[in-house]
Design a protein around this nucleic acid. Structure first.
Lengths: 348, 348
DNA sequence: TTGAAAGCGTTACCAA
DNA sequence: TTGGTAACGCTTTCAA
């Protein structure tokens, strides 16, 4: 029923081995032979059997990209960039096409492990984990073990925007300087004269949450400003909305709010509007990330710009083990403050 | 080096066949035997070899989800929902875990076909195509041929938010009523008294673009309103921004703008703000889709709500061939007008 | 440069 | 309920 390599070989009057070599382009094949084979492939409309190929070669052309929330543009941008980088490097087997697969963990540690197992089962060529990690000893150990096993089996592992795995030189990491970013974000508000600053944080048990909060506090104490109220929530808009209302309840005199990411910042803005407060007239808002809609949607939002495209592309290239490949290497992408719109100084 | 089924069998003192049966849960196995096998699996930390399994079973547990733009929350929501639906139906082989893989075509017809080939090569269990399709005879024929081939090979194919393939009863389709949605959106503005309405359309060669534009025009002519200016662009924010400026240039007296989707609508709002126009005081904006940030980000945006979650979940279930699976069936999800915030009537 | 043949690790059919 | 054993379709030495 289905066309196999043998059929193509018969039609081209060569051995299956030769067809395989033509398709993979790894071995020298006479030009005339190659052409005959390719014609046969075309005429028979032959499509390589991936599983069979992967079984024999002990590796597949699947590249897994794990994200915490596929509906969040933050991850979309990184995944898209990584995917492009992977596609460009096309040089593998059978046409060199890699299949970049985006896996949505939804922030659940179980699903994260499940996907890693699934990718391990598929003998994935590479795995890229994006975004912050859960700060749970047991889970981190489980993930670390899994990643080591993957790496040992020949799968390239890259962490992007997630802290490196201690003591594993086979896992490459690319991190964001969350602490410095949050510091600069807060510094900006302090420079404008704000002193009563509230903080909307992410989930308490995530690395990004902790690092950003630490950076914020460093800036506050360095400036001699009293630490304002902090409310934790998940990294989404609804959470930013609720947390902001809570901040205002605790401290009605706030003149600025720092949000753990842009999506949260949007929620904060919505809450402020609903409270009848103008932005940034009454309260200024600052957020992390670099989401495409933040500039337009929120006229006066200060944002730390994370080079998502670049990071994603770089992770993709690392995963493909090309020029930059340095397993075990740790590169940190510095947070770069960028005032996307002038946040106003406090009134009075 | 790596642990195989045979290793597990030896350790559990049973045959490989039995181990396979335990792992797949398809055949009756004595409870005591099962337990012995599972213990061995655990002790050896065995992970099934996916490619080998897929080769022997002639099918894999991969489910492909093609999206036009992974950074667009619209697709993220659909992909996430489909993925959940797929995960729930866990009943397949080897633990029943399906690997949902999201493939980003970037709207490129070539990449769309490439991904379909890749999924065909992987012997994917199902493929879900989301979003509008390019209206190009040649490309549509190529995709239709590919889909038919996939379906013939046992891959379930589902179209979600994309017009059905003519004459192929093996491909299930789930469509949005784009025409009626656009009509109701425009009707809403007309009812408020708007007469000078501009339209920001998507790319000229997409089905969604055409259907929505047709619905808009139907509403205009039915109300006896003169057709306003239309500008085409891609389905992103920057495009909405530019198109809006162009609309205002052509027709400074516009009192309302209809955008082909919410992302575009956000761009339109940004442009209006930059022009010093208040929304909806000077100009009202209406958009398609149901993006999570539209309500908060844009105070007065009228939106046609597409039941994305439901559609995605349903597509996922269709793909899994569970209760609703009706290959060849065509289900249409009606557009439902939902005023998310009161769009204002025109001034004067 | 090409061919022959031995795997690769599972599944599924046929017996027992 | 379990075991034996052909496939499954490709890759890759080893020879020629």
């Amino acid at each position: 029923m289905t066309v196999t390599l043998a059929d193509v070989a018969a039609r081209a009057r060569v051995s299956p081995a030769t067809v395989s070599r033509v398709l993979n382009g790894n071995y020298p094949v006479a030009a005339s032979t190659r052409e005959r084979v390719l014609r046969a492939v075309d005429e028979l409309d032959y499509v390589l059997n991936g599983p069979a190929s992967s079984l024999a070669a002990a590796t597949s052309d699947l590249v897994g990209i794990l994200v915490n929330d596929i509906a969040d543009p933050f991850f979309g941008i990184m995944a898209g960039a990584a995917q492009s980088a992977i596609g460009e490097g096309a040089s593998g087997r059978a046409g060199g096409e890699k299949l970049a697969v985006v896996c949505n963990t939804g922030g659940s540690p179980e699903r994260e492990l499940t996907y890693l197992t699934l990718l391990q089962r598929q003998r994935a060529a590479a795995v890229i984990l994006t975004g912050g990690s859960l700060e749970d000893e047991e889970h981190m150990a489980a993930v670390a073990a899994k990643l080591t096993k993957l790496a040992d089996a020949g799968t390239r592992v890259v962490l992007c925007g997630r802290p490196p795995v201690r003591g594993d030189a086979s896992v490459a990491a690319l991190t964001f300087d969350n602490r410095a970013g949050a510091r600069r974000l807060t510094d900006h508000l302090l420079t404008l004269g704000h002193r009563r600053i509230g903080y909307v944080a992410g989930p308490a048990d995530r690395t990004t949450t902790r690092h950003r909060l630490e950076g914020h506090r460093e800036a506050m104490s360095a400036a001699g400003a009293a630490e304002g109220p902090t409310v934790h929530g998940s990294y989404d808009r609804g959470s930013g909305y609720d947390a902001t209302l809570e901040l205002l309840r605790r401290e009605p005199s706030l003149t600025a709010i720092v949000a753990a990411n842009d999506t949260v910042a949007l929620g904060a803005c919505a809450a402020l509007r609903d409270r009848g407060l103008s932005i940034p007239g009454d309260v200024s808002v600052a957020g992390f990330d670099d989401l495409p809609f933040s500039v337009d949607a929120v006229p006066a939002l200060t944002t730390v710009r994370l080079p998502l495209h670049e990071a994603g592309a770089r992770a993709g290239r690392l995963a493909m083990a090309t020029e930059e490949a340095q397993p075990g290497g740790i590169a940190t992408i510095p947070a770069e403050l960028m005032v996307r719109a002038s946040t106003a100084p406090p009134r009075g």
